[in-house]
Amino acid sequence: MTDQSHFVEIRHAQKSYGTLEVLKDISLNVERGQIVAIIGPSGSGKSTLLRAINDLDSLTGGEVWLDGVQVNKDLPHRQYEKHINAMRQDIGMVFQHFNLFPHLTARENVVMAPKMLKGLSKEAADKLAEEQLEKVGMLDRIDYYPSRLSGGQKQRVAIARALAMKPKLMLFDEATSALDPELVDEVNMVMKKLAEEHMTMIIVTHEMDFAASVCDRVLFMDQGVVVEEGPPEIVFRKPTKDRTREFLRKHLAGVA
């Protein structure tokens, strides 16, 4: 069908708002089972890039491919909606502010989409909810509403909700940035567990220690371009670019 050969492939991604260019010709390949962290100062375009992968923010140029299918296909509106809804079922996303559905319990949050989109029976849905919430250590809160959960617990339910669709790829948009420091670890643990299960993940994060410990590759972005890219031990320890060094000096307290 194409020359696409990587699991996730971003080709010449470009995005501008009027004259402001937030992504300038970015290309990125991610292989199946790989974990890539995107770091960089705020306003660097890293969240925009992540959100372009499932087309929450549309690119103004370039292509995104997942597993041999182009995500941001050029189609008439109705056909495109159908296409993107199908694609998004394969791309889980976790947000900085959790975005749990407050009118639904943890269980209902997890099974709503699988029930609607995959026609799960009640038994199958219950099993799925238990399975996914167990995985993130939230089984004991299965019938709680989000308002009664802590930030870390909410985020773990949100991860379970994304996993319940059995995605091929998981996107994390600063999943721990809104959490109190003591709640960060419980979420990181869940993400580590996913890493051990070889889930393909792209992670936008401010947490350098975590990025260094789970990622296969780190991308440092600034002002809409990828400044430096490589394995964490290189990018964090022997960065070649001045901008990377300067950024890391400010953000690297713990990674040695």
């Binding site: 929450l56 909606e81 809804n85 998004r88 079922q89 791309i91 996303m93 989109l117």
Partner: peptide
């Protein structure tokens, strides 16, 4: 909050 719609759309729900 617009994050609610985003979360729903991200799961594959239509508009």
């Amino acid at each position: 909050d617009k994050g609610q719609r985003e979360a729903a759309r991200t799961l594959g729900l239509s508009q």
